[in-house]
Amino acid sequence: MSHQDPTHLRPELRRGRAALSNRPGRFEAHQREGFADGWAEEDLPPPLRTELQSETPRRIITRNQSPDIGFDRSVNPYRGCEHGCIYCFARPTHSFLGLSPGLDFETRLTVKPSAPELLRAEISKPRYKVAPIAFGTNTDVYQPIEREQRIARGCFEVLRDFRHPFTITTKGTLIERDTDILGEMGRDGLVRAAISITTLDASLARSMEPRVPLPARRLKIIETLARAGIPTMVSLAPVIPGLTDHEIEPILQSAANAGASAAMMILLRLPLEVSGLFREWLEQARPLRADRVLNRIRETHGGAEYDSSWQTRMTGQGTYAELLHQRFRLSVKRLQLTTSPPPLRTDLFRVPPASGDQLSLF
C-alpha cells in the first residue's frame, strides 16, 4: 500500500497501536481505497496521537438482558480504549460514532466526566433496586487516560459512600492506585476484581495488546490486590485457538501462585469488523501460523469465524472447544480455584444523606 492509503498507515505512524488500518465502519456509505500517486515521502502525515472528546450522557448505567452474561448493569466511563487489543469485541461500537473500529478505536477516545454525578443520581432514586454494577465490560476503565481523568475513581468513591457492590475487569496497573477504596470494600464483600491475562509471551502480548502492561506485571497486580483483601479472579479472555490455547495451564498456575482465588475463560470472539482487523493483524504478526489459527477459530464456531448465538458465542462449540474447556476445568480443580465466587453483598446498601438533609435520631 502507498503511504497515501487513507486506511492503512505505515508502521512508524502507528507505533504502539495494534490495528494496521483505519477502514470505515459498517454504517459508512463509502469505502476508501488507497493507490500510489507518486507524491514525495516528506508529505507523510504525523504519527497517530491519542485524542479525547467529552460526552455528557443523560444516564450512565447501561442495562442488559443477555442470558449468557452474569450481570444486568454496567458503567463505561470511556468509549474506545487506548490499550488497543486487536481482538477487542468492543471495537464495532465505534462505528455507531461514525468512526473506524480500527485505529480510531485506539486513538479517538470519548470521556464522560459527569459519570460519578450521574451514577450518584441514579442509585439515589427511591425505586432503584441494588445489584452489582460491572466495570470494564466494554472498554477498560484503567486504560492510560484514567491516570489524568480519574473518572473511574470518582465512580468508585460514590459506590463506597453508598456501600454498593461492583466488579472490575481490567488489564491496567492503575487499579493498584485504588486499593484504598477496593481493599476496604473487598473485605466487606462488596468488590471483586478480574485481571485479564491472554498470554505469558511478552513478545506476543506487546504485538497483540500494545499498550497493556506485560503479562508478568499483570501477575504482580493479582498479588497486590490479593494482599489488600480484594477477591481476585484471573480471566483467560480471550483464549485464541491455535495461538494461545497451549497456555491455559501455565496461566492458571501463575495466577494461582500470585494469589488468584477464582478463574474464568472466554474463547475468542470476532464480531462484525473485528474479524477483518484480527485477520489483518494475524497475517502480518504471525504469517506462518495464520491459516492454522483461522482454521481452529472456525472449528470452534461451527465453520464460521464468529457465531453470535446465545450461550455458545463466548464458549465456542464442537470437539476442539470442549477439549479446551475440559483442560481449563481440570486445571482449575487441581489448583483449587473456583469458577463461581460467592455473590457480592447487597444488604449493606444505603443512600447517604445529602448536604442539608435532616439526620435521623434513630
Rank of each mutant, 00 (worst) to 15 (best):
V191G: 05
E209S: 03
I221S: 08
A40E: 14
M265F: 07
T338G: 12
R345P: 02
A29T: 13
I133H: 12
T137V: 14
I86F: 08
S340E: 13
A290G: 09
Q284S: 15
V158Q: 15
F349A: 01
T199Y: 04
H325W: 15
S308V: 06
L118S: 07
A134C: 07
P126N: 03
F162S: 06
R218E: 03
F135I: 09
L268D: 07
M208L: 04
C81Y: 05
L204C: 03
A255W: 11
I248Y: 06
T56G: 06
T139C: 04
E176S: 09
S203L: 04
T346K: 05
T169A: 10
S275R: 10
H246D: 15
P165Y: 04
L361I: 07
E51C: 07
I297T: 11
A18G: 14
E184Y: 02
L323P: 00
F105P: 01
E41Y: 07
R163Y: 11
S355N: 10
G136A: 12
R345K: 09
Q358V: 15
S331P: 02
G242E: 13
V274R: 07
I133A: 00
A18S: 14
C81S: 08
G189V: 03
Q65P: 01
R10N: 11
A237H: 09
A258P: 10
V332Q: 09
T232L: 02
I145D: 10
M1H: 13
S331A: 15
L219Y: 12
L348P: 03
W39C: 02
E33R: 15
S95K: 04
A216I: 14
A131W: 06
T50D: 08
R49F: 07
R211F: 09
P287L: 02
L103Y: 13
A152S: 15
R63N: 02
A19Q: 06
P342Y: 14
R177N: 14
P47H: 12
T319C: 03
R327M: 01
Q326A: 14
